[in-house]
Nucleic acid binder design. Structure first.
Lengths: 343, 343
DNA sequence: TGTTAGCACTCGACCTGAAAGAGTGCTAAC
DNA sequence: GTTAGCACTCTTTCAGGTCGAGTGCTAACA
């Protein structure tokens, strides 16, 4: 059965109306609301075809039709128009970002919140682990005798702070020396690439401060080994799910939101093969039973052309794909531009 | 009407049973389950008295009784036994805290998560604003030409990081000088107490680096002026509310959780006159209509004897007060001890 | 050959009434 | 002062019935 233009229009009508009303769409509604110039009976025939093709389905015999996962897929791939709110949205977002000077992480957090508010979806930002980014700066600061703060900046302006216990005899100058030495040897290297001989080199040149270096390195390796910690994840708008009629059952919401709090679930959900551009996963396409009623839209988040993380939008399969994709596009672009400017 | 020992026992039974089952408690249940040695008829009479006293109430004529806010209050004030899980709990918590070396904020976040998991309540940690804590250390680090990182440590080991744009000509030594100068003048001062003449002093001695100092000070003042930012709030276990039968209605949960995301609500909720020890607010006692079905337990969180924030537990009025109070006690004590050790 | 009107049919949503069950308050007896 | 007993109230549950939305099919029409 081929997909002629009228079938496309009817499918689109079903998708759009269902997105809007969350109610199964009947043939009468379509013939009246979307004037295709044919009667409800004709639409009924076409709808029977669409159902046979697996693009729409009936919750029960005497109900209208709702799009299937495949139906949404067809809509997203062939029918969906990119909405043009992008430009205004970008300006809005850009303004909000530049308005206040903030701690780095907060900008991202706030952006995600905004995105969640606008789309009424749940948003996820996932920054890749440290292993993939290079050390920009490492500095030890003497806070008080016996106590130092280690500041680590990695590519992409990610900052880690960690307190360090040190011998009370250590002076500010000692720490400065250690910092310099470690910077010289490790700067620009991907954290996973540190060679043993480089570390040996550091040790040999800093026998006096060996204890501190030892401690600092141990701490670094502990940071690296904490697999669970190495991805920064910001989740926002989880409550938005509660507004969706498909989640009027508390248990459903609970299961869903609890799933979303698990890192493995999020990680799989946010997997995106598509290096540039946007990935849309609809319902069962996510491969996760817990979120089979949800769709996920994922975009890569880049700084200076290199992917440093992912931004995702999670909503019910009955979500407004056109707006969601546009907004996500606008958001990532704006963020990337903002960080470029800063350089 | 006086409160004899039998009435107390019956009230306690009503509270305990209702906490356990979330169902109105009948006279028969009490006479069978809590052997008070009297028949259900007698208990009925006593319950009528308790109802007259306003300590328990009936949802409808043919239902059992549930505790009123006043009933819970009486229970908490006079009947509740401190549960003795405290010691094991403290060890459990203490172990978890010391197990992994972490970024400072993460310890608090994780602790709150643990507390939420154990009590099945929502937890809040609210750190007071910077104005009340003194500057411990300020340091400017050269990240790359034209870009510096400002690290600020305040009392209570709170760390703020902020990137700074600087003239490309600025050297590492310039920044070091500025840092030293600012430290000399501002260290140990409450941030709100900075005097104009001190700032002038800094400016006069650093004319060459004036631009940077200017920028740094501007940034500092911007941090201070961001009123909305000056309290760090960690909220966790919001989802736990979803497990509570009193929140099986989605809209109720949504309203509640949305309220809890508002800072003003949280601030009022966490108000605690009681300087040392624990404050319990039951239902309407919170003074907030949005959370009239909830109770809040608040404890002050201290570092070195000084209150730096508050820790709170939020659950339905039908919460297990005994366990909650004990756990909260254990948590704050453990945290305080942990931070003391570190010094 | 494609389109449309008409009609019987299906099935969920909603209402109603009856029955069951839980728990009470009151009274009278112990 | 305590208890057994009983009538009463109110919620919960379920079956039956009606209503309406929407369908699929058929026959007529262009």
């Amino acid at each position: 059965m081929e997909m002629d233009s009228r079938k496309q229009k009817i499918l689109e009508a079903v998708v759009l109306d269902y997105i809007e009303t969350a109610e199964p769409v009947g043939s009468r509604t379509i013939s009246k609301k979307y004037n295709l110039g044919v009667s409800s009976a004709t639409i009924r025939n076409e709808m029977a075809d669409l159902e046979e093709m697996g693009l729409i389905e009936q919750p029960h015999t005497s109900a209208g039709r709702i799009p299937s996962d495949a139906g949404y897929r067809y809509y997203v791939d062939y029918l969906m128009a990119q909405s043009d709110i992008q430009e205004e949205a970008k300006q809005l977002i850009s303004k909000a970002i530049h308005e206040k000077q903030q701690q780095v992480g907060d900008v991202l957090r706030d952006s995600m919140k905004m995105l969640a508010d606008i789309t009424n979806c749940t948003t996820v930002m996932m920054l890749d682990n440290n292993k993939s980014s290079a050390l920009q700066l490492l500095q030890l600061l003497l806070v008080e005798p016996g106590k130092a703060l280690m500041v680590i900046i990695t590519d992409g302006d990610k900052i880690e702070n960690r307190f360090l216990e040190i011998p009370k005899t250590m002076t500010k100058e000692d720490l400065e020396l250690v910092s310099m030495m470690m910077n010289q040897n490790l700067r620009g290297l991907k954290v996973g690439d540190w060679q043993h001989n480089i570390l040996e080199n550091i040790f040999q040149n800093l026998t006096r401060q060996r204890q501190v270096v030892d401690c600092a390195l141990e701490m670094l390796s502990s940071i690296l080994n904490l697999e669970g910690r190495d991805k920064k994840i910001y989740l926002d708008g989880g409550l938005n799910m509660l507004s969706q009629p498909e989640f009027k059952d508390v248990n459903k919401v609970k299961n869903l939101l609890q799933s979303l709090e698990q890192q493995e679930v999020l990680t799989q959900l946010m997997e995106a093969d598509n290096e540039s551009g946007i990935t849309v996963k609809i319902g069962a396409e996510t491969g996760l039973d817990e979120v089979k009623d949800c769709s996920v839209i994922v975009a890569n988040y880049k700084v200076n052309g290199e992917t440093v993380g992912k931004v995702g939008l999670i909503g019910p399969t009955r979500m407004d794909y056109a707006t969601a994709v546009s907004m996500l596009n606008a958001m990532t672009q704006t963020l990337e531009e903002a960080y470029k400017e800063e350089k």
